[in-house]
Design a protein around this nucleic acid. Structure first.
Lengths: 135, 135
DNA sequence: TTGACTGACGTACAATTGTACGCTTAGAAT
DNA sequence: ATTCTAAGCGTACAATTGTACGTCAGTCAA
């Protein structure tokens, strides 16, 4: 584990876009971002640079432009970010957050289905590891 | 809605403690916090002050000490914080986060039980209010 | 070849955040 | 009363973050 510095909010948005559009130039990221989020071209550039120094991206010159690629997967960043949040906000207790997500955010039918599967799977593995120490 | 400025990481920890120990003086918060998290007394003081200016706490002088009370409930802060996070990190899509929480974090038997209930309830209301309420 | 562009790169700079010191004063202990 | 202590309050200051400007160097269209 490398223990990268955490991503700031702005960096996250850029990182997300980088995941979405794959290895990309600053302009590509910039354009992909622009729809909803107004951010100056050079601001994006700065964020990408910072992502790189923080170890969350790499880049290589390709001709005269620089192409950035994500180095950490969404999964990893989620883990690092959410673990930290849960720690600070609930002292490590996961459930308040789960509760909030399920109750207060829109979850559509498909998601509910997936959720059921997830919980079932969770139940199973819990049963397993529980075996022998039941009281 | 008042749209308070978001809490920073440090502020969150102090806010959480304030929720836990109820209306409390700086020292009480400080001591409640000290266990795990080493933070200078005056740092706590500063955070409480900032919580107040951000509208997340109030205080009143009680004799010569100042007693702080939370003004926003955990629920609210969770919403504001998590919504923001989900927005930035997943463009508003909730499921990646739910998945992470269920799969990668320790959830004990009781929580699984609760989770099942939650999902069931969710299923029910989805079945019913299928015709146009929320977007 | 001369603009007009586009991109990289270095740099800037204000706001926010993390962390804490120091002065002042109201009560507590001697 | 004198001293000690704990609290408040103002202030400081470095690091990080949000945001962006200039400058210089390739590239293309006329």
């Amino acid at each position: 584990m490398v223990d990268r510095p955490a991503l700031s909010k702005g960096e996250m948005e850029v990182a997300r876009t980088l995941w979405e559009v794959g290895p990309a130039t600053v302009r590509e990221v910039f354009e992909s971002l622009a729809e909803n989020r107004k951010m100056d071209f050079s601001t994006v550039q700065t964020y990408l640079r910072r992502l790189e120094t923080k170890g969350h991206a790499t880049s290589k010159k390709e001709g005269r432009r620089r192409v950035y690629s994500a180095r950490t997967r969404p999964r990893t960043v989620i883990r690092e970010t959410v673990d930290d949040l849960v720690q600070r906000l609930f002292g490590g207790d996961t459930m308040p957050l789960v509760r909030h997500l399920i109750e207060d955010r829109q979850i559509d039918a498909d998601d509910i289905f997936e959720l059921k599967k997830l919980v079932e799977k969770l139940e199973q593995s819990a049963d397993q590891s529980d075996k022998g120490k039941r009281k």
